[in-house]
Amino acid sequence: MKARVTIMPQAAVLDPAGVATADALKHLGFEGVRSVRIGKSIELDLEHATEEELHQACRDLLSNPIMEDYHLEIFS
């Protein structure tokens, strides 16, 4: 079983790397860029795990709920 966790900074949290990348895109000529947010994607290969266990892993270690939101996808 495989799972993918996508982690993004919350809207209220400043993402300086995203802002810098948006600026760079504008310099490159991509005038239409409104904003860029940078998160991370984590792929897990699992013997077994329940959905609840995976959510717990996301909350306790993979993301920090104070500044990030996560999205969990499970592929069987």
């Binding site: 949290v13 400043l14 300086p16 790397a17 920090n64």
Partner: peptide, 16 residues
């Protein structure tokens, strides 16, 4: 902060 023993979190410096 990560351990929840202090509130809040430390983010990447604003100017990177």
């Amino acid at each position: 902060c990560e351990a929840g023993l202090l509130p809040g979190v430390l983010l990447r410096n604003r100017h990177l």
